[in-house]
Structure formats: C-alpha cells, structure tokens
Simulated scan of single mutants.
Amino acid sequence: MRIAIVTGASSGIGQSAAIQIAKRGTGVILTYRDNHAGASDTVATIEKNGGTAVALRLDIGRSETFPAFRDSVVAVLRDTWQRDTFDHLVNNAGSSRMALFEHTTEEMFDALMRVLLKGPYFLTQTLRPLLADGGAIVNVTSNAASVSGLEPGYSAYGTMKGGLVVLTRYLAKEFSRRGIRVNSVSPGSTRTRIADNAFERHPEVVPGLAARTALGRLGEPDDIGVAIAALLGEDGSWITAQNIEVSGGYNL
C-alpha cells in the first residue's frame, strides 16, 4: 500500500485531497493545527470508505517542531503500515491575510512567509529521507500568484505562493534523479474555511466571483482534491515540474 502525507487536512482542500487519495487505495497521514474535530472527521470518513488514516498535529509555521513531527511519522509508518518510508507528500496547510500593499506590515509578511513558503520548504527537507524513490509531491499554491488571479490586497500572499511555484520546479529538478515527481496546483476562488470562513461571512461576493469564472460558479474543495489525487497517481506519472491552475477559468 502506498502512503501519503497531507498537511492541513482538517477541512477544505486538504480534507478533500486526503479523502480522494484514500479512495484510490492509499493510506493517509493527515495533519491539523487546531481543528482536531475536523481532522477526526477526515479520519472517520476515510475509515467509513474502507481506508486507513492517522491524524497528527503540526503547526506548519513552526519549523523548529519538524524534527519531532518526523519522529511521529516514523512511528506511525512502523506501527500502522509496517513501513519505514512514505510515497506522497501534499503541502497544503496554509493561511490567508488580506491587506493592500501600503498596509502590509512586516509582522503580516513574516507570518505568511513562515506558513506558506518557509514551512513547506523545510518540512519537505525534513521528510525527504523518508520519501520513497518513485514518489510524488504536490504543492498547493494559488492563482493569486498568476495573472488570472491578481487582485488588490494579496501582494504578500501571492508573493509567497509564487515562491512555492518556483520551489516546485527546483524540487522537480533535484528530485528527478530519484524518480520523484513534483508539481503544484493553483486553486482559484474555492469555498473553504480560509480567511475565517470569508465566503460564509460575506456571501454577497460569491455571485460576482462566479460571474468572472468561465464555468459559472465558485470552486468547491473536491474540484481541487480530485486534481491533487490524480497528479499523485498513475494518471500523472509523466507530469512533473508543472503548475496546474484549477480555477474553472477564472478571469478567462
């Protein structure tokens, strides 16, 4: 059985990705920061569908905790699957804070950097010895880093996500000698809990976003989750170093 690690899988895109990956016969180690109930729901859904999953706590913004997290992964791999390696990594855990450029503080910038760029960079580095040859990585970026998603207020967020797109290409180059594929997925506007459940708090913005989307609606977590699962699986076996926008044609 193949094993995947999915960060930030207590809700939204990460939760969908974990469930979709498990449906394809892969065991899942999923992480959460504060939403233990959501992580338990993800595990329960996977187990209800006949899969196996374990939830571990991880704060992606605290890189000093990564060695201890790696030790927890080693123990779970051994005790649950009798493995000493895993096959897939989905760097999904994230955060979003909106502010116009002139109002962006160093504190806001640094907080986003720790979660969106430094975290995935050094978590991947920490877990690299456990990642099996022939495996795959998917980094969840954002169309805020591309022309289609340029919106005022996301300069810091988009900058970090753009850095993750570039990191994806470098990792694909360096990991290729081990047969490890690395790609990124850039969601457009998607109905998740990010930014304190912004779409629930401000439902009036949804019609406008749908009108700017070629396929006429807001994205749902499963729209992104299935794309991530496909890239990790055999269907994506000849794809690497690519950033794939999954936005329904936003601003097309």
Rank of each mutant, 00 (worst) to 15 (best):
T85V: 13
A55M: 07
N183Y: 14
V115P: 01
A229W: 04
A211D: 13
I239E: 02
A241G: 13
I60K: 02
T26H: 12
S189M: 02
A195H: 05
N251M: 11
T192E: 02
R191M: 15
A211H: 11
I137Q: 08
P152C: 06
A68W: 11
K118D: 04
M108L: 14
G216I: 03
T213D: 12
T190S: 01
R2K: 08
L232F: 14
S10I: 09
T141C: 00
S142L: 00
G153P: 01
G119N: 09
T80W: 10
A18F: 12
N251T: 12
G158M: 00
A145T: 06
Y121N: 05
S247Y: 00
T26P: 06
N143Q: 09
G153Y: 00
D196E: 15
G51H: 03
V147H: 11
R62V: 09
Y32K: 07
G135Y: 02
N183C: 15
M98I: 02
L209T: 03
A229P: 11
E107K: 09
L117E: 00
K23F: 07
A144M: 00
V28D: 10
S63A: 15
T126N: 02
G135R: 05
G134L: 08
G179P: 13
E245T: 07
T45A: 12
T124G: 15
F66K: 09
D79A: 15
G179T: 13
S176F: 12
T126H: 07
I21E: 06
G61F: 04
G27V: 05
A111P: 07
E234H: 05
M98N: 02
V226Q: 11
P207T: 14
A39M: 09
L215Y: 03
I180M: 09
A37G: 04
N35P: 05
A111T: 14
G236E: 08
S148Q: 10
N91P: 07
P221D: 08
I5P: 01
Y154K: 00
G158P: 00
G94L: 05
N49S: 14
V182L: 10
A4D: 05
A75C: 09
R201P: 00
T168P: 08
D235W: 13
I3C: 13
I244R: 09
R57M: 14
A172R: 04
R62I: 08
I224N: 05
F109K: 00
A99H: 00
R97Y: 06
L231D: 07
R193I: 15
Y250W: 07
K48S: 15
N139R: 10
H36T: 07
T104K: 01
G51S: 06
H88Q: 11
K161M: 02
G38Y: 13
S155F: 03
